[in-house]
């Protein structure tokens, strides 16, 4: 008798957690499917922006429908997101900070190749530019890209090979010098050599560069998107200020619905509604509150003064297509590699 009870008790002990797990795991799945869902794959620092944007959209949708709308957000570097979607991440819409990363998904056949023509403003409801975060009082008087290439100036920006900010930093410096010397390429390359030599660290991503500049106190200027520089200045109070150069490049934030996913999820209408919502005055106001520049003229007029007047150069006007930018400048052995060699 005793033997038998020992046997059964120890066996149950072993199986109980497994049974519990299966029961709980099973309970979660149907609950999530009762709502209408939309999955938005977005870039890494846009978490709060989309949390704010989704709230009114969900409220409006719930008012007009029987069931509840759940918007699932996923955030990571937009190149990582593109790769995940190609491998099967079931995102209905993408809201990225790199046009080239949507092209990557389009090349894989999951997004229509004419995606930039499907929505207004090249499918880019908002945009930003590059800015310098400098220490209070701007002790080295850094106001233009040219100032950054002066001797003795120390720069912090992420590696152009691995991050969007880094790429735009490189392109911004190049484009502004190129505008100044009327496309004298030898002069621009000499300038870029000095500019790149001033970098004290090249972290792999934007967050690492920020840590180097703010927590480790390295460098005279952190170069990043204007939106990020402003939210950093807001977070760290009066220790820093933001400088936006007079001539700069436009960094478009592109959006698209993922054709393969919306077909499978039967969510095409919802995905389009959501992306079109980003162009409405209500959404554009929220976007501007998060320090991005917006397209809607009414909203732009209301917030005039919040963003300094800047002559913004178009990447495609200066450099051509993203495909050619990547192969000419950032590929192994490309311009960036050559210019970094001393």
């Amino acid at each position: 008798m005793k033997k038998a009870s020992l046997f059964t008790v120890s066996r149950l002990h072993g199986l109980a957690p497994l049974a519990l797990a299966l029961a709980l795991g099973g309970a979660v799945v149907p609950a999530a499917q009762a709502d209408t869902t939309l999955t938005n794959a977005s870039f890494d620092v846009a978490r709060e922006l989309f949390a704010a944007l989704n709230k009114p959209f969900i409220a409006e949708w719930d008012k007009q429908h029987q069931d509840h709308l759940v918007i699932k957000q996923t955030h990571a570097g937009s190149s990582t997101q593109a790769r995940s979607i190609i491998q099967g991440l079931n995102a209905d819409v993408v809201t990225f900070n790199q046009t080239s990363d949507i092209d990557v998904i389009a090349h894989a056949g999951l997004i229509d190749s004419n995606w930039q023509q499907r929505l207004p403003e090249h499918s880019s409801p908002f945009y930003s530019t590059m800015a310098f975060l400098v220490r209070k009082g701007n002790p080295k008087h850094l106001t233009s890209w040219q100032d950054l290439a002066e001797q003795g100036v120390e720069l912090v920006f992420p590696n152009p090979k691995t991050s969007g900010n880094g790429r735009y930093t490189y392109l911004g410096a190049w484009a502004s010098q190129s505008a100044l010397n009327h496309n004298d390429e030898a002069n621009t390359e000499a300038f870029m050599r000095r500019f790149l030599a001033n970098a004290v660290v090249l972290d792999s991503g934007g967050r690492g560069a920020t840590t180097s500049f703010i927590e480790r106190g390295q460098g005279d200027a952190l170069i990043t998107f204007e939106s990020e520089a402003r939210s950093l200045a807001k977070q760290y109070g009066d220790k820093y200020e933001v400088v936006v150069p007079k001539v700069d490049v436009i960094a478009e934030m592109p959006v698209a619905w993922v054709d393969a996913s919306v077909r499978k999820n039967n969510s095409e209408a919802l995905a389009k509604d959501y992306l079109n919502y980003l162009y409405t005055p209500q959404a554009q106001t929220i976007i501007a509150d998060h320090f991005y520049r917006v397209r809607n003229e009414q909203v732009a007029k209301q917030i005039a003064g919040r963003f300094p007047d800047t002559h913004l150069l178009n990447i495609s006007d200066v450099f051509g297509s993203w495909d050619s930018i990547l192969s000419t400048h950032f590929a192994s052995g490309g311009k960036l590699d050559q210019l970094q060699r001393q």
């Binding site: 999530a32 999955t39 978490r47 699932k72 957000q73 996923t74 955030h75 990571a76 995940s84 991440l89």
Partner: peptide
């Protein structure tokens, strides 16, 4: 896939 509230475990949340 980093889906907030769905596929983010504690270590991933720390990083994110």
């Amino acid at each position: 896939g980093m889906i907030n509230g769905v596929t983010i475990s504690l270590p991933l949340q720390v990083e994110q």
